[in-house]
Design a protein around this nucleic acid. Sequence first.
DNA 1: CAAATAGTGTCTTTTAGACATTATTAA
DNA 2: TTAATAATGTCTAAAAGACACTATTTG
Lengths: 257, 257
Amino acid sequence: MENEDINEFFNNNNQFLRNVAVDNVIFGYHEKELKVLLQQPIPLDKWTVTGGYIKRTESIDEAASRIAFQRTGLAGLFFQQFRSFGTPTRGKDGGLTAAHLKEMTGVDVPEDSWIFDYFVSVAFYTLTEFSKVAPTKGELEADCQWWPVSELPPMMFDHAMIVAEALKALRLHIAHYPIGYELLEEKFTLPEIHSLYETILGKSLDDRNFSKRLMATGIIIKLNETKKIGAHRSPFLYKFDKEKYEEGLKSGVALAF
Amino acid sequence: MENEDINEFFNNNNQFLRNVAVDNVIFGYHEKELKVLLQQPIPLDKWTVTGGYIKRTESIDEAASRIAFQRTGLAGLFFQQFRSFGTPTRGKDGGLTAAHLKEMTGVDVPEDSWIFDYFVSVAFYTLTEFSKVAPTKGELEADCQWWPVSELPPMMFDHAMIVAEALKALRLHIAHYPIGYELLEEKFTLPEIHSLYETILGKSLDDRNFSKRLMATGIIIKLNETKKIGAHRSPFLYKFDKEKYEEGLKSGVALAF
DNA sequence: CAAATAGTGTCTTTTAGACATTATTAA
DNA sequence: TTAATAATGTCTAAAAGACACTATTTG
């Protein structure tokens, strides 16, 4: 972005909706840990979930997808709106100032720029397969990287709560819909998906009961291949039955643990 | 509102947030029928759910409560945010025009007034006890009244979908949280709450299993009084155990039927 | 053969679901 | 006494939950 564009952006930009924006909590799973993609809007010690403004020409769903694409490089991800947040003070708590932006961009941002206004945030979460994501920071951000959900850095505004609520929504969701397709590699082992469920739910699940019930849904298929994991018995590989998975997303699957 | 206030309202009003508003689907239960409070913004054949703009000084929850209070006269109702709606065209479909407003208020409303803009709606539903509500139309509305959920009039914008989604959310909610406290009179009979559940869920529930499971939650208390209902056996009256009810709202109650 | 991890079945308890008879009230 | 509605318990089937041993792999 050129300086004049940045100027235009902060002044009387008419491309985006005022007073409403989208936040998107992007989850990834890696090494038995649930991670969330955070961005650092200013080179300070505070982070936010990924998010952005809504174009006048797009729906809120399109805005959420666009934001996920910009930060991950991936399209067609599974995403879900879970709640909206709106209090007059939510943008004020320890946030961005005109001085910070001046420092970052070299542009004088008016103290009364629309971006400092009261914003209602429509929040989504998005599921991604960690290894496919190339975290990409925006032009006005200092950084963008994965953080373990269990060890978040200091969060700006109400974003710690947004992550907590997203996780709550994901945990609720996992009992009713098939999760895992977007978080695992195409072929995975039973112990892998077992760990994923344990990680998301934050509790251990009996391995025998877990596989019994997961297999009973019919959404995963056992392959005639195994994965070599060193000096141990080789676990079988599985993949999702795409058709049953899609149907499960529509009509639901009972998988409460 | 005086004409100059109305003028101010439609022109450069700075009291409310732009591009975001609240819709509140107010449910009431009466004579074994679930009803929804609708308003008619223009004296035509189209209705909307109750809703309004968000003041710069209030949270979205406060806006939803305020709207419910304005339309019902009741404060402290149970309400729940369930989804946000936002597509660039949602305000355009068969809606309000400047001409309609001129006709209603006598004031010239600019074609480019902020109220015709793309609005993201944060939607809530609210539960009310029908008999306590005095439906009150707003100054800029033509009418406000109850409609059976099963026989809605022609709805403006995407409001038929908003009601459908609210009902879906209520049905999901009823399986996890105690519902009924806000919809029934203080003292009620088992057949009454049984009918309420059947109405909300849209299916019949075995009376023996229903009472067994409802009583097992402990959230209602049998009183030593009966209700006279004419030439029939008098049913016992019950009331909610306020403490257990509050706790159920917080930590959930399993009541899937 | 030792160490690590995968894979699998049975029994018990709990919950859900189907189902029918007796009791009360007032005309 | 009849017509209407309320109240209530048992049996069966299905699901959830607890639990432990055998199999495979490589060093």
